[in-house]
Simulated assay, not measured.
Amino acid sequence: MNVICQYCGKPAQFVDSSRVYRKSYGMIYYCKPCNAWVGVHEGTKKPLGVLANAELRRWKKKAHFYFDRLWKSKLMSRKAAYKWLSGQLHKPVAQTHIGMFDVSDCKRVVEVVFKFWRDQP
């Protein structure tokens, strides 16, 4: 699989995650000049989303912090939470996954989920 870095346009390397975490958690695609990486589905070379630099990784963590509460609190299933989010973001369900999002999408996740929790009785 050829994964191209969206920051520099060069191919990412398929390497062990110990290159960035100092401990192996499996394989990743890694662009060293951009300090961007993405994990892969276990046992495959299929990326879990898009390469993420430091800024995007920060926003993905924030998005997950707010979004994951929807399904971890048992308020709704994980599948239902992503379906709800797809409606909020006006994206097809198949394209609604934080791993695929850019910074703008992640900021929007934080906004809509924060508003959801704020408006709860």
Rank of each mutant, 00 (worst) to 15 (best):
M1I: 08
V3P: 07
I4C: 00
C5Q: 01
C5F: 01
Q6F: 07
G9R: 06
A12S: 11
F14W: 10
V15P: 00
V15N: 03
D16A: 06
S18G: 05
R19Q: 11
S24C: 03
Y25D: 06
Y25I: 11
G26I: 01
I28P: 08
C34E: 14
A36P: 11
V38D: 07
V40W: 11
V40I: 11
H41E: 13
G43C: 00
T44Q: 04
T44S: 06
K45D: 15
K46M: 14
G49A: 05
G49W: 02
A52H: 07
E55Q: 14
L56K: 12
R57T: 14
R57D: 06
W59C: 04
W59P: 13
K60N: 15
K61V: 09
K62V: 02
A63M: 00
H64I: 07
L70H: 05
W71G: 02
K74R: 15
L75Q: 14
L75V: 07
S77G: 13
S77D: 09
R78L: 08
Y82M: 09
K83G: 04
K83R: 09
W84A: 02
W84H: 00
S86K: 12
G87A: 02
Q88K: 09
H90Q: 14
K91D: 01
V93C: 06
V93T: 14
Q95V: 12
T96P: 02
T96S: 03
I98Q: 06
I98P: 06
M100R: 15
S104T: 12
K107H: 11
V109A: 08
V109Q: 08
E111R: 06
E111F: 05
V112A: 00
F114Q: 15
F114V: 10
K115M: 03
K115R: 15
W117F: 15
W117G: 05
W117H: 04
R118A: 01
D119T: 03
Q120R: 01
Q120H: 00
P121T: 05
P121G: 07
